[in-house]
Design a binder for these strands. Structure first.
Lengths: 299, 299
DNA sequence: CGCGTTTACGCCTCACGTAAACATC
DNA sequence: GATGTTTACGTGAGGCGTAAACGCG
């Protein structure tokens, strides 16, 4: 039994499949497979059930996982307590929505680089639903996503709120400064695709007003959405700070409405049984940096 | 950092020198040395101070030792809790005095072989002083020695008592059945060499009676001593059970005396900071088997 | 000079990746 | 057939022992 074998087992057990685990370990699938077989041989116990399409943990594997995890963390803690580099180090695959990527992510990366120079932070921007799946697959260590995860295996902790306001190009609404339902008859809603956190926000708002949407124009980029709205391609909502910037320039008109769009709560998410110190540090870093209400640099 | 490196460090740190540690690990000194250098490189810290004649732990090494030990024990416990062999296994270098070797050791070996079939017990017989040194050097895991260790690094736990009586060949003492001081004028005391537990016993007894010993005949074998006594080469004392056997055959005469030789207390000794479960099992096994008052098979 | 440790070097095992085969859905 | 895992095999690094060198008492 070696620490490398335990590490291989840990990732193989917590990732969706051996292929993803191998990628995390910078290892070929075949080498990972052999390492796992060797671990099983050294223990004299089968840890994975390979009968199905994908390998799953056996009962012994389930028992072994928390112990392997504890051993690895103890080894790491020992290494850190003695070795020269006492700080968090390694690699952190970090998921964020595009809104986060455009607002506070640069600040957070700067913060992390300064505080933990040996940590390689690898941000990955995508819509919430995709991040959620990658997180469960083991492709990400953690993510900041709108709302709480629906999955019991994922732990969510609130880190901030984003406020949105309806906007439209001035030429679309004339002199009106308030949202009118008939706008949706004449113009598409420009919004992120299904699976983004804002989609839920929109659906709830539409439901509350009992509105139907004849046409949606979806785009997976907030930057592009802002551009589409400015070009008058439809109505939509933007983060309040963005809207204010664009409104003061005259590019967009902020449309008052009641009820207002409720704020969107963002949570820091990680797998519940992943208790590496890394994740506590990342949560701290996010909390220190995450402000969804600052305008992005682009504007 | 690998488990092998930690194991190498553990033994290098607890044995008197690298050579002894290498022997325990079934490794050449050169390979052990390289492993230790690699561990130091991986930690970025020097664990040994090589400036002197022999390597000694640095301050960092002292801090690291208990942590390495804890990690190794945790790894072993995990391996056992999952693996197929849940029993104590491995190798146990076990020191005993010759008296123990001739009385209860075979019983204990049988007991251990039955209870822990995967444990290779390697008994090593020698006089107490030598065992004590080997124990401190790391050449032995544990030992059963007369009296308590004088060294703070060694923990002693009582496991039994041996009773001795004075004997002499019938032709030496005529019809006398009691010990007479003048015997020591005419005949040497046949006894174990300095460093054996019985030597202290004898010295105390002599001091209590304020006797001086003109001539000692020392031999490092109880069997030989019994033979010498039977052959009339001197007076001496034997374990009570041996003496009874030989006395009933007419080979020796038991000599009453007051005060009687006080019983000799035997202790199970191990290094104080060696907390492997193995040692608790060995103590149990000794306590279950150690009876110093049964005649040896030889008689 | 003896004892303990490290360096030099040749050997061989072991762990890796590529590529193909196999198995399941 | 797509996806996921294992087997086959050639290659290279790493860990081993022998033997020599080094360094402190």
């Amino acid at each position: 039994m070696t620490l490398k074998q335990l590490e291989a087992f840990y990732w193989a057990a917590t990732c969706a499949n051996f292929t993803l685990a191998a990628e995390r370990l910078y290892l070929s699938t075949s080498s990972l497979s052999k390492r796992l077989v060797e671990l099983e041989e050294s223990l004299g116990v089968l840890l994975f059930d390979r009968s199905g399409h994908k390998a799953t943990l056996t009962e012994a594997g389930e028992r072994f996982l928390p112990q392997a995890s504890a051993l690895l963390m103890a080894a790491e803690a020992t290494r850190k307590s003695i070795g020269s580099d006492t700080e968090i180090s390694g690699r952190c695959l970090f998921g964020v929505g595009e809104l986060s990527a455009l607002t506070w992510l640069p600040r957070m990366v700067a913060h992390v680089r300064q505080r933990y120079p040996d940590l390689r932070l690898e941000p990955h921007a995508d819509i919430g639903l995709a991040l959620d799946e990658r997180l469960r697959n083991g492709e990400l260590d953690c993510a900041v996503i709108a709302g709480r995860s629906q999955h019991g295996s994922i732990a969510s902790q609130t880190v901030g709120q984003a406020h949105f306001v309806w906007v439209a190009a001035p030429e679309l609404v004339g002199k009106a400064t308030r949202f009118q339902d008939k706008l949706l008859q004449d113009h598409p809603i420009v919004t992120l695709p299904t699976g983004a956190g804002t989609t839920r926000l929109l659906d709830e708002w539409l439901m509350a007003r009992n509105l139907d949407v004849p046409h949606r124009l979806t785009c997976n980029s907030w930057g592009a959405i802002a551009g589409l709205l400015i070009a008058g391609m439809g109505v939509g909502f933007l983060p309040e700070s963005w809207a204010r910037s664009l409104s003061s320039r005259g590019d967009l008109r902020i449309l008052g409405v009641s009820p207002a769009l409720s704020p969107l709560t963002y949570t820091f998410q990680k797998r519940r049984n992943d208790e590496r110190p890394l994740l506590a540090s990342m949560l701290d870093a996010v909390r220190a940096s995450a402000d969804f209400n600052t305008p992005p640099r682009l504007l």
